[in-house]
Amino acid sequence: MKNQLKVLRAMRSWSQADLGEHLDVSRQAVNAIETGKYDPSLPLAFKISRLFALPIEEIFDDEFEGY
């Protein structure tokens, strides 16, 4: 899934490890989400959303074109 995590992280000058500490996940998990190799669970997506104060759909894009 495409996402803006890397940009949002860079705007705060956070490393992947810094973001991982905020989310209580490993750097590897942040890296996997950023590179689209792993889609976060709904609770983690909400946690990310709250951390950056943005709606989930502004951070993650499932590329759904609409019905």
Binding site: M1, Q4, S15, D61
Partner: peptide
């Protein structure tokens, strides 16, 4: 997959990737 391929953001995380 990410939509950030065109950016030039290189940080230590990419080296440690």
């Amino acid at each position: 997959m990410t939509n950030l391929k065109d950016t030039n953001m290189i940080d230590r995380d990419e080296i440690a990737g």
